[in-house]
Amino acid sequence: MNSPKNILLMSRRAPYGSSAARDLLDIALTCSVFEQNVALLLLDDGVLQLLANQDPQVIQQKNLNSLQSSLSLYDIEKIYIDADALEHHGLSHSELHIPVTLLTKIEISQLIANSDIVLTV
């Protein structure tokens, strides 16, 4: 068995308008099943994926908040967001559904540099 890789999954797309946010979570859960180290990084409109109080049943979609709540059961604890993006949307920590770590641009570049594999959806 090869040693686990540090996999960084990145997204800058808003949820529901495309399948990107859902794909990100599906890939994350699958990587966890294969016992890889997974981190999520949300940039630009991607931070909107974590807004609390989503109710997408009204547009016949599954609730991403529900899947996001289960990330810790899959041992996915590293959830990073671009602090500038959150500020750009006029949002704060408290409006997000799960705990996250805010990163500066420099920290983001280091995170990418230190990951074995980076996937963007």
């Binding site: 808003a14 949820p15 529901y16 909107l48 807004l51 609390a52 109080n53 989503q54 109710d55 997408p56 049943q57 009204v58 547009i59 979609q61 908040n65 750009h88 949307h89 006029g90 559904h97």
Partner: peptide, 24 residues
């Protein structure tokens, strides 16, 4: 608010409730 503030104040803007509700 922060995005809305960048649009002309006189503009008549509406949004679909279902899409807003879905997204929290």
């Amino acid at each position: 608010n922060t995005h809305r503030a960048k649009l002309p104040a006189a503009l008549k803007i509406k949004a679909l409730r279902l899409d807003a509700q879905a997204r929290g």
